Simulated scan of single mutants.
Amino acid sequence: MSRPLLRRDLLRRGVTDDDVRRALRSREWLPLRPGAYLDHDDPLWRDAAGRHGALVAATLPLLAPGAVVCGVSAAVRHGLPVGGVDLQVVHVVRDRTSGGRRSRRLQVHTGPVRACDTVLVDGLATTSVARTVVDVARSAPFDTAVTVADAALHRGLVTPADLAGTLRTAAGRHGIGRARAVVAFADGRADGPGESRSRVLMDALGVPAPVLQHRIDDAGGRHIGTVDFWWPEAGLVGEFDGMEKYGRWLRPGETPGDALRREKVREDALRAQPCVRGVVRWTWPDLTDFAPVAARLPRP
Rank of each mutant, 00 (worst) to 15 (best):
R3G: 02
L5F: 09
D9V: 04
V15G: 01
T16F: 03
P31L: 10
D42T: 09
W45A: 11
T59Q: 01
P61C: 08
P61N: 07
P65Q: 02
A67C: 14
A67Q: 03
A74D: 01
A74V: 08
V76L: 03
G79E: 08
G84H: 10
V85Q: 01
D86E: 12
Q88E: 15
H109E: 07
P112V: 15
G123W: 09
T127D: 05
V129F: 02
V134S: 03
P141G: 09
V146D: 02
T147V: 15
H154I: 05
R155P: 00
L157R: 13
G165E: 13
L167H: 00
A184R: 13
R189E: 04
D191I: 05
G194M: 11
E195I: 12
L201E: 10
A204T: 15
G206M: 12
G206A: 14
L212D: 03
Q213T: 07
T226G: 06
V227I: 11
W230P: 00
W231V: 12
E233P: 01
G235M: 13
E239G: 01
F240T: 05
G247I: 04
E254L: 12
T255F: 12
D258S: 11
V265A: 14
A272L: 11
Q273N: 13
P274L: 06
T283G: 11
L287Q: 10
T288I: 14
A291H: 08
P292Y: 12
R296W: 11
P300K: 12
